[in-house]
Design a binder for these strands. Structure first.
Lengths: 132, 132
DNA sequence: CGGTATCCCCCCCGATACTG
DNA sequence: CAGTATCGGGGGGGATACCG
């Protein structure tokens, strides 16, 4: 185990490429909350994360937008923001049970996409062929 | 049974109030496709519908936007558009199997909303109380 | 490190009017 | 009946720069 001695559970580092911009997930016909809410939930599912930690896989998101997303999620009770007054400052975002309750839905969306998204994309491509 | 003698299955008329604008579904943190795609799928789940038939429950949607939504869905293989050259003209929209495959996801979203949306809205209200 | 502050653009969506 | 044409706004989101 690589848990810190303090007992605070530190999940494994986030894979910076967990949201491959080349994968067709951008065509996924689902959204949870705002544009990035679903991905933030994914990033937090294994435990608390810091702002900069989130920025690695979400490097396509500007800090302004990420901050807005996080504040909206906090307002809606999907996560909690905890700031420890240390130096340098440390802030942690943690999913609430309400936020966690969305995980099965995200799983279902991902499963749908794995099995059906290729058909949707094929249909789309076929249509642009016959009507350019 | 009130099926037409021709054998074409005519589903029961759509409830014009099936999407009550006063219900909090507008706050549902889910979207399938464009803004109205999910509701169109719901409207079609019992069988083919005509354009004007869809406009009853979707009276908040202008014909232009409804038409755009339907064309996008056809392009993506979610429904088929069949026009019979009769007078007056008749056009029917029917879900494809791909379109139908989204129904379980819409069900899951609805179930989530019934059980959890009140908490989300309560959290939101609480936040505006303490920070107006 | 963990954000704000500005500026700005795109595009989804709506209102209104008209047509084969 | 089943749409299209045209115009316009609003806001979510991105680029860039700056701050405690």
């Amino acid at each position: 185990m690589t848990d810190s001695p303090s007992g605070t559970r530190r999940p494994a580092p986030l894979d910076p490429d967990m949201f491959d911009p080349l994968c067709p997930s951008s065509a996924m016909p689902f959204r949870v909350g705002d544009k990035w809410t679903g991905m933030v939930i994914r990033c937090l599912e294994d435990g608390p994360r810091r702002f900069t930690e989130l920025r690695a896989p979400l490097r396509a998101v500007t800090p302004k937008v990420l901050s807005e997303t996080l504040r909206a999620m906090e307002r809606d009770g999907l996560l909690t923001r905890t700031s420890y007054d240390e130096n340098p400052p440390r802030v942690e975002y943690t999913l609430t049970p309400l936020g966690r309750s969305l995980l099965p839905l995200l799983d279902a969306a991902r499963t749908w996409s794995r099995t059906h998204l290729p058909l949707l994309l094929a249909a789309r491509t076929a249509h642009e062929q016959e009507a350019p």
